[in-house]
């Protein structure tokens, strides 16, 4: 066997090892992909648009936020800014993962960053911390199934969403606040979580009552972030990290 054939076999088994690790993520994200599609058409997207958004953005929470604001007829630039804001955490992921994949060819790196989601980062970072090399085949095996299922299930959700007669009885109009509350609660171990949430909640409610929608989103978010910036660093716990 030539050296090239051996390395191709190695890459193939690395790929399938990544695929195995992707399965829990595929299962866990399926309901959200279907839900996204259903909510997207409920908020005025076509099936094709729901499919395109999943295929091009590929970020669950940000897609939900975008759709919610679209349904509220928020200005387009603010929708894009909100998608950017919700996805901003990826900046930290790419700062962290960059040193692990810097040895890949440029095109592979560009593709790798495109599929850099929360679980993708978490699983890849864990592999790197265990002292193992993060290879492209393994990384692609981990991310590709999640991507393919996400896009297909979004389109399915959109097709079936059109068939749901009474969206109010099924609670579809209020599923997003529930989902977002779940996400907010998921960050509760972060330093300053409670003060940030309280500041954002208060500011967004006041802005909602006075300035009106959609500005309550930006105003509330800025209030929470400013509070975290202004409070002395020893409260925010960022110094304690190595």
């Amino acid at each position: 066997m030539s050296a090239q054939a051996i390395s191709e076999n190695g890459a193939r088994s690395d790929f399938w090892q990544g695929v195995r690790l992707s399965m829990p993520v595929v299962v866990a994200s399926a309901p959200f992909a279907l839900l996204f599609g259903a909510i997207a058409v409920d908020n005025g997207f076509s099936v094709l648009e729901a499919f395109l958004m999943s295929a091009l953005v590929f970020g669950g929470a940000s897609q939900m936020v975008g759709i919610e604001l679209f349904g509220q007829h928020v200005a387009p630039w603010l929708i894009v800014l909100s998608i950017f804001a919700v996805n901003f955490r990826h900046v930290l992921y790419s700062a962290g993962i960059g040193r692990r994949i810097a040895h890949w060819p440029l095109f592979q790196q560009a593709l790798g960053y495109f599929i850099l989601t929360d679980p993708q980062f978490a699983v890849a970072e864990r592999k790197a911390e265990a002292g193992e090399t993060v290879g492209f085949a393994w990384y692609l095996g981990l991310g590709l199934p999640v991507y393919v299922f996400w896009v297909v299930e979004s389109a399915l959700g959109a097709v079936f969403g059109k068939l749901i007669p009474d969206t109010h009885a099924l609670g579809i109009d209020f599923l997003l606040p529930i989902y977002f509350l779940g996400l907010v609660m998921g960050f509760r171990k972060r330093p300053l979580w409670l003060p940030v949430v309280m500041a954002s909640a208060a500011a967004s409610i006041i802005a909602y009552k006075t300035v009106g929608s959609p500005w309550h989103v930006s105003i509330g978010a800025i209030a929470g972030v400013l509070l975290a910036v202004i409070l002395p660093p020893h409260h925010s716990g960022v110094e304690a990290r190595p």
Partner: peptide, 16 residues
């Protein structure tokens, strides 16, 4: 600290 606060701050405004 500000970056850490971004997700909770944005998402809270969609719930409250």
């Amino acid at each position: 600290a500000g970056l850490n606060a971004v997700p909770a701050a944005v998402l809270t405004t969609l719930v409250a």
